[in-house]
Design a protein around this nucleic acid. Sequence first.
DNA 1: GGTTATATTGAATCTCTAC
DNA 2: AGTAGAGATTCAATATAAC
Lengths: 367, 367
Amino acid sequence: MTMTNRKGASALPLNTILAGDCIEIMNSLPENSIDLIFADPPYNLQLKGELHRPDNSRVDAVDDHWDQFSSFAAYDRFTQDWLAAARRLLKPNGAIWVIGSYHNIFRVGASLQNQGFWILNDVIWRKSNPMPNFRGKRFTNAHETMIWASKSEGAKYTFNYEALKALNEGIQMRSDWVLPICNGGERLKDDNGDKAHPTQKPESLLHRVLVGSTNPGDVVLDPFFGTGTTGAVAKMLGRDFIGIEREAAYRKVAQKRLDGVRKFDREALQVSASKRAEPRIPFGQLVERGMLRPGEELYSMNGRFKAKVRADGTLVGNDVKGSIHQVGAAMEGAPSCNGWTYWAYKQGDQMVPIDLLRQKIRAELAN
Amino acid sequence: MTMTNRKGASALPLNTILAGDCIEIMNSLPENSIDLIFADPPYNLQLKGELHRPDNSRVDAVDDHWDQFSSFAAYDRFTQDWLAAARRLLKPNGAIWVIGSYHNIFRVGASLQNQGFWILNDVIWRKSNPMPNFRGKRFTNAHETMIWASKSEGAKYTFNYEALKALNEGIQMRSDWVLPICNGGERLKDDNGDKAHPTQKPESLLHRVLVGSTNPGDVVLDPFFGTGTTGAVAKMLGRDFIGIEREAAYRKVAQKRLDGVRKFDREALQVSASKRAEPRIPFGQLVERGMLRPGEELYSMNGRFKAKVRADGTLVGNDVKGSIHQVGAAMEGAPSCNGWTYWAYKQGDQMVPIDLLRQKIRAELAN
DNA sequence: GGTTATATTGAATCTCTAC
DNA sequence: AGTAGAGATTCAATATAAC
């Protein structure tokens, strides 16, 4: 078992599968120590009798003993208990994902809100190849719901907006994700060749969750580890994981799976970063460095306005003085304005946005 | 006001809009008399400040008084009260639909279950043209959730399986529906030319609901009638409706709308048949799905260049980072480049164009 | 009249840092 | 803790204007 020290000092059993009840084990771990929790709790499915396909073959439904709850009240108690334990573990800026279906997700969502978690999105996993509804009595149950929540309102959760936008070829990622269910070679089998776990989640789903809401080196906890999809993807992506699983059979399959996973190389783990993460360059530096001279004129990109650079890095034009942002906003009569992309200078006949000069400085700083 | 006698004998104010508080009015109507309830209750959005688009225009938010609740507890009481009144009205084999967002739907779902309703499906309305996330801080909120429930477990609810299958070009209807939001000519305007209601639902949505879960002659109740989409579609489809609406302004717009609706409007039927476009497959999906691994190398089909795949679906090579198209263009010094046909991966000795992987996903989605 | 830019808008829990 | 200022941020569908 790898133990490690983090700021705050308590030891975490990183990259291991812990055996036992998830509530007890979570309560034994140090508080405020986890960056992200991904949880796929039992679904409280209430299949009465057996289900048969039209050809009379039996559908292998989720009917394991761990999925039977006597009542909604019992399920609520269970949910509240494991959520409270999870909440204690999360760092103040940590976040949680919970996946479920209509059988349980409404109760989970209400409990999350009641405990002070702040819902950021509900995300729909739209299955591209779901099991059809054999009886034709309802809609094909073709999706599951995930809730993404921060520990509390106003917390600074991690969201790699640009990386997800890149994953989606330049268009911001929506709350509905179209991904296939886990089958084929990815679906783990037990020694009899049967599926090892009834609800194994696809790695593609966890890839998107972890790329979007964690950074390399973060600690990801999965209290219902199952066959370890969360751990496998975390390892690939250079995140640390902690798994908790009660059933020995699942732990065995998961450990074997994890042993076979390789981490992607460092360069591949770099993702597109947001501008917010880049160092801040005051406009005055452009003047100090002589990239723009006091007295030089700047022009709005829409060609409608101009202003003059002053020695202290402010602008003046149309009786307005102030920062590049303030003067731009005043000219447009707008509540705010990004001066970096609003203003340009003249180079011969060309209009060059001043943001290019900032980029030049940033490139210098990077070397 | 049309009054009519049904088996059970009590009079129902069919095809009218009742003015007042929906709980009081529902309690004044005869029990076990309604076939279907469609409810679009307040979402309790809890908006804080103002929001501006990147172009500085202001978003016209839903800040109406009817959406304000002091706490989750207050919202829960309201939900339990109107659901109890609705439940009393439903025939034993009646059913209910409730639509909501993550702000309220989990509380609604839990209350439904607590009161003995039996959830049949949760259905996702995937908006083809949602409002984007302007600040890049969350996923585009691109869907709303509907819960479909029978009055109790084992009830013989109405489900027109074949009609829905026909609506869906012969394929079983799934639990996710892609439909555009209500705009254009369908969006009702007030006398000033502004939108008459902040959250008018599209007729296509109600069309699918009513075709699927009612029969001609059924009575459909909408306790939050608004501009009367439920009534308009019910009238077109030959169902009777009862609307309840507290705000006089909404009632006025709705009545005018209803007066203009003809039964079996052909055009409306066509609106509901959504066209299927060829799905766009972002390159990132090949990475998420494990068809290509982060760190793997791609080669240009002309054999001159190579680049490495990153975890967010971008490429990196020769100091250039970006999409498959951007990096291809940069390497060739070309203004643009179709990365799908430009790049290939190695399979043994073979070079396989990545477009083949995209075709594989498309074929999967067609099923 | 027809085609091409430009403007508007939609159920939204939508920033971060320094003072 | 609250405030002020820097500065980052959008997709699809209509409607209207311009050419």
